[in-house]
């Protein structure tokens, strides 16, 4: 094919990107740039004359705010717990539902449920289960005389921090399950046969054959879930369960930014908080890249030792 034809082909390609690009520019790119600019101003809805450029002033005050540090800490803990435990639950179900059993399709469909229902439905259902007077969990535990007083799942500060994590794990594990199932299905029986012949037991097969094969999938699904949880999922989940309460104990960064903007009108400061979220993600990506790089170098060196 000559060059002219290739160029003509590419032009069609550009045309085909137009619909998506218009939407991106309007809904993603412009608000992003504007948000970044706002983070450098003292824009405040309650003060008509605000909106001056203040440089990194917002970021300075954020870093000096002890509330910010504790909220950031909880956001990270929240994300790590949700990712880790939804991964474990997803992995367990993926392994179980990969077996050749009856009703496999039905079980898989049922296990997928939490992922596809609206977050609002999930939150209302759990608020109902967690309810101190009428909730199923408290009533059952009381009827069985395991507890005397109802457990205040969402009204006690420490418990609320845990409860919102449990609900998030519940909502997130099906994604892990689906991705890991796809990974498990790519492992053919022929990969297991030599191990069976050698008499390896199931635990060994799992750790030495299944898990290494699942590694790439595991990295992808935990990374994506970490990103989603940190950026958006945590907001919906916590906002709908506790509104960040009781007395701010379940604030994550996105909720802090939201309240700062909506209720205090401090758009500039709120934008700076969300920019800090991007900084944390960038740092996490950087740490990951460095870890991967040093591991690769180490491996190379080890290989060199063996050879030389």
């Amino acid at each position: 094919m000559n060059n002219k034809l290739l160029v003509r082909r590419n032009i069609v390609g550009y045309y085909m990107l137009i619909p998506a690009t218009i939407l991106f520019l309007l809904i993603n790119a412009f608000p992003l740039v504007y948000g970044l600019i706002l983070s450098l101003t003292d824009k405040n809805y309650t003060k008509p004359k605000s909106g001056k450029f203040v440089g990194l002033e917002n970021f300075k005050s954020i870093l000096h705010d002890s509330e910010f540090w504790s909220i950031m800490g909880y956001t990270i803990v929240y994300t790590v717990f949700v990712v880790a435990f939804s991964y474990l639950l997803g992995l367990a179900l993926a392994v179980l539902l990969n077996k050749n059993i009856k009703f496999r399709g039905v079980f898989r469909a049922l296990a997928l449920f939490p992922w596809v229902i609206p977050t609002v439905v999930a939150a209302q259902n759990w608020r109902w289960l967690f309810n101190d007077q009428l909730g199923f969990i408290n009533r059952t535990l009381m009827e069985l005389s395991i507890i005397k007083e109802p457990i205040l799942f969402l009204a006690n500060a420490d418990l609320a921090r845990l409860s919102v994590i449990i609900v998030a794990i519940w909502k997130s594990y099906p994604f892990m399950m689906v991705v890991l199932l796809a990974g498990l299905q790519s492992i053919g029986d022929e990969m297991y046969e030599p191990a069976y012949i050698d008499g390896a037991n199931r635990t060994k097969i799992f750790w030495y054959i299944t898990m290494p094969t699942l590694k790439p999938m595991s990295i992808v699904c935990t990374t994506l879930m970490g990103l989603w949880t940190f950026n958006t999922l945590s907001f919906d989940n916590i906002y709908l369960l506790t509104q960040g309460g009781p007395s701010g104990s379940t604030y994550v960064m996105s909720i802090q930014s939201y309240y700062t903007a909506i209720y205090r009108g401090k758009i500039g400061y709120a934008s700076a908080i969300s920019v800090m979220m991007m900084v944390i993600i960038a740092l996490a990506v950087l740490i990951y890249a460095i870890a991967k790089y040093t591991a690769a170098i180490k491996e190379q060196r080890n290989a060199g030792d063996v050879n030389g």
Binding site: I27, L32, L36, N231
Partner: peptide, 14 residues
């Protein structure tokens, strides 16, 4: 990788 809240207010203005 963009947090939804960062875009929320600017998008609201749009």
């Amino acid at each position: 990788m963009i947090p939804a809240v960062l875009m929320l207010m600017p998008l609201f203005m749009v």
